[in-house]
Amino acid sequence: MTAPRPTHPSQATEAGPHAVPQPAPSVNALARPALARLLDQADALRVQVAPGPSGVCLVDAGIACRGSVEAGLLIAEICLGGLGQVRLRADGHAAWPGWVEVNSAQPVLACLGSQYAGWSLAASKDETGGRRFFSLGSGPARALAAKEPLFAELGYRDRADAGVLVLEVDRLPPPVIVDKLLRDCALPASALTLILTPTTSLAGITQVVARVLEVALHKAHQLGFALADIVSGSATAPLPAPCADGVMAMGRSNDAILYGGRVHLTVSGSDAAARDLAARLPSCNSAAHGRSFAEIFSAADHDFYKIDGALFAPAQVWVSNLDSGNTWQGGGTRLDLLQSLWLGAGQ
C-alpha cells in the first residue's frame, strides 16, 4: 500500500482558492474515458468486474485475478483524474529495465486533488461483523466528498454525477464502508466504481510507483511552497516486481520513489523559492535515507507516523523557474541500493 505521509500543518502555507485554476475541470468526468477502457478491456487487462455491496461496480485488479502492469498504468491515469499521462518505458541500457513515466500540465489538481491517498476509511470488527477494515482512498471520488482539509486549501470540489475511487486493499470493502462512500459522495450505487489494487499485485505496485510525481507535490506542500506557483511536472521511477509479502511489496514500491524517483517541476515566482525547493525536497534530507523502507518501517514498530516525514520524497528533483529561466537540481538516485534489494541472490 502507499505509505501514509504525515502532515505538518505548521509547515504548510495556506494555498487559498487560487491553488487550482478556476473554472476547474471535473476530475471524475475527465477520468471516465480511462475508466471505460479499463472496464471494456477487463479480460485483456486481466482484471475482473463485478457488482459489489449495495450495487456499486467493483474492479478487482489483483485479489482474485492476476491483474497486469498495463492495468496499473491505466488505473494510475484514472487516479490522476484524467489530467496526467502514465507510461512504461523499457530501457535495456539503464540500471533497471522498466521505468514508469508520469507527466501532468495540472499537477496540483491531478496529484493533490485526485491521486493523493488521503481519504482514511476505517471500520471496526463490530461494524464489519468480522475483521477490522482500513484503507486509504485515492482518486477522483475524493473530490466529491472533499472530507480532507486539503480541499479547502485547494479551493476545489467536484460536482460530477459519477465517481471512481481506488482502494489499496487485499479484500473486498465491507458494506459499511461502501455505504459511507455513497453518502459522502452523494451518489447512487450505480454511479460509483471502486478499484481494488493490492500492492502485492502487478497493477497494485505499478499504480503506487506512478505516484512519484504526487509524492513530490505533497512534499512541496509540506515545505510551504506556494501550490499556485507549480505550473507542470514530470517524473520517472523504476518499476520493481511485486512479491507476496505485503510489507516487502510496500517497501519495494516506496523504495522505487525514495531511491529511484526523479522529478522535474516547472514553477513561477522567485528564484530563491525555487532554489530552496530543489534543495529541501529530495529524500536524502532525511536521516533515515539509505536503508530499505521495509527495514525503516520495521524499526518504527510498523507505525508510519514514527518515520521521519522528510523521507517521503523522490530521490532527485529539478526545479525550473519560468520567470527567470534558471533550473536547480537536488538529491540523487541510489540505483545501486535498489539493485541490491531487488536482484536475486548471486547476481
Rank of each mutant, 00 (worst) to 15 (best):
A141H: 12
T128P: 10
T128E: 05
E127N: 13
G98E: 12
F134S: 14
L150W: 00
W119K: 05
E101K: 10
W96L: 08
L136E: 14
G98A: 08
G155V: 07
G98H: 11
A94T: 11
F151A: 10
Q115R: 08
W96M: 09
G118P: 12
Y116Q: 07
A122G: 14
A117R: 13
V100D: 07
S114A: 08
N103V: 06
W99C: 03
A110W: 03
K125C: 11
R131F: 02
E127Y: 01
R142S: 03
G113M: 01
A146L: 03
W99E: 04
Y156L: 02
A95I: 02
L150G: 07
A95F: 12
K147F: 04
Q115I: 02
A94V: 03
F134L: 12
W96Q: 14
G113K: 01
F133L: 05
N103W: 11
L109G: 14
F151T: 04
H93L: 04
G137D: 04
G129W: 00
D126I: 02
Q115G: 10
E148G: 01
G129L: 04
P107Y: 03
R142C: 03
A94C: 04
A152G: 01
Q115H: 13
W99F: 02
E153D: 12
R142T: 09
C111Q: 00
D126K: 06
P140V: 00
C111I: 07
V102M: 02
G118K: 04
E101G: 07
G113S: 02
A117V: 15
S114T: 09
E127S: 14
S104L: 06
C111A: 05
D126Q: 08
E101M: 07
R131K: 15
S124Q: 11
L154G: 09
L144V: 11
G118N: 10
L136K: 13
A94M: 04
G130D: 09
A152N: 00
G118S: 08
G113I: 02
N103I: 06
G137I: 00
G137L: 00
Q115T: 09
G130T: 09
A123H: 10
T128L: 10
V102K: 01
F134E: 13
R157P: 03
F133A: 06
P107S: 13
V102S: 01
P149A: 00
L136G: 14
A143D: 01
R142I: 04
T128I: 13
A123K: 03
F151I: 01
L150M: 02
P107N: 12
E127Q: 15
P97H: 06
Y116E: 05
A105N: 15
P149E: 00
L121D: 06
E127R: 09
A123C: 12
Y116M: 08
A105Y: 15
V108A: 06
G118M: 03
F134H: 15
G130Y: 04
G98M: 04
T128F: 10
R157D: 07
A141N: 11
Q106Y: 14
P107W: 02
K147L: 08
Q106C: 13
T128G: 09
S138W: 10
G118Y: 05
G139Q: 06
V100S: 06
V100K: 01
A117W: 15
W99Q: 11
E101P: 10
A117K: 14
G113Q: 03
E153S: 13
V100N: 05
W99N: 09
R132Y: 10
E127H: 08
A117M: 14
L109T: 15
R132M: 15
W99V: 01
N103A: 12
R132A: 15
A110G: 12
